[in-house]
């Protein structure tokens, strides 16, 4: 069986597929690739049809060698990619010989990159997914982030790949990133001032951003809500802790929480937010559930057409 020997794991690299479902009641978050478009893109390029797992690398800093010949592709945030110290294009499928060294280094944009290897990362699925949920110790390799010296099993490569590159996202720090959200939860109970702060001020992505969520800074939101009974959170939920700085909850979020939430950012904008670096300016805008459906529908259609 092919394996990948990791020489440098980087700061927060983990095995991810599209995540696990049905475990929220148990307190286990969905996990899964932060940039699911990048995940799907790589899967299709290598002919992976079974949601094969990839290695998610944050701020690309990763060095590893497969012991057998294989194909690889890197998707998501662009990286400087080299094979045995020879720079190669970061956006295409490469044949790698057993023993060669792959090296990824962070580039100017984005956060999460995905290293896909033909056959997929074949760690044992837990609760029907290979995605790592590090806080819970579920999935991935021993439930945690990857470490130097780890050895990952690689699955049997089956079919030949496509050539599609359906990645939807580009994030440029200079432009404002709009976070469209579906109002809900405590939206109707928030004061007019709180809603005004939320809708009319600029916010900035802080360094306090990880797979659990992204903390923003900007106008403080005084919710006026002091006690709230714990209830389910959801992907993209805008959580406002007592300090008034919103946190957008993402894949590794707490499944239940007791902070006020005026709504949830739509998936498509969450993806861009996940890839945004600290300093990125963001604004909130209200979006009806029907509009959110329409946006998702169009993006899905776009993905599917590009993948054909």
């Amino acid at each position: 069986m092919n394996t990948l020997q990791i020489q440098r794991a980087g700061i927060a690299s983990s095995v991810q597929d599209s995540g696990r479902f049905g475990m929220l009641q148990m307190g286990i978050p969905p996990a899964g690739a932060m940039d699911w478009c990048a995940l799907i893109s790589g899967q299709r390029q290598l002919g992976h049809l079974q949601d094969e797992a990839a290695i998610e690398v944050a701020y690309g800093d990763f060095v590893a060698s497969p012991i057998e010949d294989c194909h690889i592709v890197v998707t998501g945030a662009p990286v400087s990619l080299s094979i045995d110290h020879k720079p190669v294009s970061h956006a295409s499928v490469h044949a790698v010989a057993g023993g060669q060294t792959l090296s990824m280094k962070t580039a100017a944009e984005g956060v999460y990159s995905y290293l896909h290897i033909s056959g997929g990362i074949a760690v044992t699925p837990q609760f029907a997914s290979r995605s790592t949920s590090p806080r819970e110790g579920v999935g991935g390799l021993n439930g945690g982030y990857l470490k130097n010296g780890d050895v990952l099993p690689i699955g049997e490569a089956s079919s030949s790949g496509g050539r599609a590159d359906p990645q939807l996202i580009t994030v440029r720090t200079r432009e404002t990133l709009w976070l469209r959200f579906v109002p809900g939860f405590q939206y109707a109970e928030l004061s007019e001032t709180a809603i005004k702060s939320l809708l009319q001020s600029d916010y900035v992505v802080t360094p306090k951003a990880n797979r659990m969520g992204v903390t923003l800074t900007g106008a403080t939101i005084e919710t006026g809500i002091h006690t709230l009974l714990s209830e389910a959170t959801c992907h993209g939920a805008i959580q406002i802790p007592p300090d008034g700085k919103p946190i957008i909850l993402l894949n590794d979020r707490q499944t239940v929480g007791g902070y006020p939430k005026p709504g949830a950012v739509i998936r498509s904008d969450c993806l861009r937010l996940a890839q945004a670096r600290p300093g990125q300016k963001v604004r909130f805008a209200v979006c009806s559930p029907e509009e959110a459906d329409r946006i998702q529908w169009l993006e899905q259609h776009y993905l599917e057409t590009r993948l054909r």
Binding site: F21, G22, M23, L24, Q25, L229, S230, E231, A232, C234, T255, V256, R267, P289, E290, D293, Q296, W297, Q300
Partner: peptide, 22 residues
């Protein structure tokens, strides 16, 4: 329906996107 969570006074139902009739 892909997931559901009970809170103190709430029930939240999570659906497959696109196949969900609001």
């Amino acid at each position: 329906l892909i997931d559901s969570v009970i809170g103190y006074t709430t029930l939240t139902l999570f659906f497959t996107p696109f196949k969900f009739e609001r």
